[in-house]
Amino acid sequence: MPIREILQLGHPTLRAVALPVPDPTTPAIAALVDDLTDTVGHWRETTGYGRAIAAPQIGELHRVVLLRLPGKPVWPLINPSIVAHSPEKMVVWDACLSFLSIFMQVERYEWITVRYQDLLGQWHETHAGAEDDLAELLQHEIDHLDGILSIDRMVDVKSLCSREEFERQHRAGSPYAQK
Rank of each mutant, 00 (worst) to 15 (best):
145 L>T: 11
120 L>Q: 14
133 D>C: 03
118 D>Y: 10
148 I>F: 08
105 Q>T: 04
153 R>V: 02
116 Y>R: 05
134 L>R: 12
129 G>F: 10
124 H>T: 02
152 D>V: 07
126 T>M: 14
129 G>L: 09
141 E>W: 05
108 R>A: 06
151 I>G: 01
107 E>G: 05
106 V>W: 06
109 Y>H: 15
145 L>V: 12
142 I>S: 07
130 A>T: 11
137 L>W: 02
146 D>I: 00
153 R>N: 12
123 W>Q: 14
150 S>Q: 02
136 E>Y: 01
132 D>F: 13
139 Q>K: 05
120 L>Y: 02
136 E>D: 09
140 H>S: 10
132 D>A: 11
143 D>M: 08
150 S>L: 11
108 R>S: 06
148 I>D: 05
146 D>T: 03
128 A>I: 02
113 T>N: 03
121 G>F: 11
126 T>I: 14
106 V>R: 03
150 S>D: 13
132 D>L: 13
132 D>R: 13
135 A>P: 03
131 E>F: 03
110 E>R: 15
149 L>N: 08
128 A>K: 06
136 E>F: 00
145 L>N: 12
115 R>L: 07
143 D>L: 04
113 T>M: 12
109 Y>S: 15
133 D>F: 15
141 E>V: 05
104 M>T: 13
137 L>T: 13
120 L>D: 14
149 L>F: 07
119 L>A: 07
113 T>Q: 15
125 E>Q: 14
131 E>N: 06
110 E>V: 12
126 T>P: 00
132 D>P: 00
146 D>S: 13
109 Y>N: 14
109 Y>L: 00
108 R>L: 08
106 V>I: 15
106 V>G: 04
131 E>C: 00
136 E>R: 13
105 Q>S: 02
129 G>V: 11
119 L>M: 10
150 S>W: 11
104 M>D: 12
150 S>G: 14
130 A>F: 08
120 L>H: 10
125 E>K: 11
141 E>H: 02
129 G>Q: 12
138 L>M: 08
143 D>C: 04
147 G>C: 04
108 R>I: 04
147 G>T: 06
151 I>D: 03
140 H>P: 07
137 L>G: 04
106 V>T: 15
109 Y>F: 14
124 H>P: 01
111 W>P: 06
143 D>H: 07
139 Q>W: 07
142 I>V: 12
148 I>A: 07
121 G>M: 09
148 I>S: 06
130 A>G: 02
146 D>H: 14
104 M>S: 13
143 D>K: 06
126 T>W: 03
133 D>A: 13
139 Q>H: 08
124 H>R: 06
109 Y>M: 01
112 I>C: 11
138 L>Q: 02
135 A>M: 03
121 G>P: 08
108 R>N: 04
136 E>T: 12
117 Q>P: 04
112 I>Q: 02
124 H>C: 04
133 D>K: 00
126 T>D: 07
140 H>I: 08
105 Q>P: 01
120 L>T: 11
111 W>V: 09
120 L>M: 05
112 I>K: 01
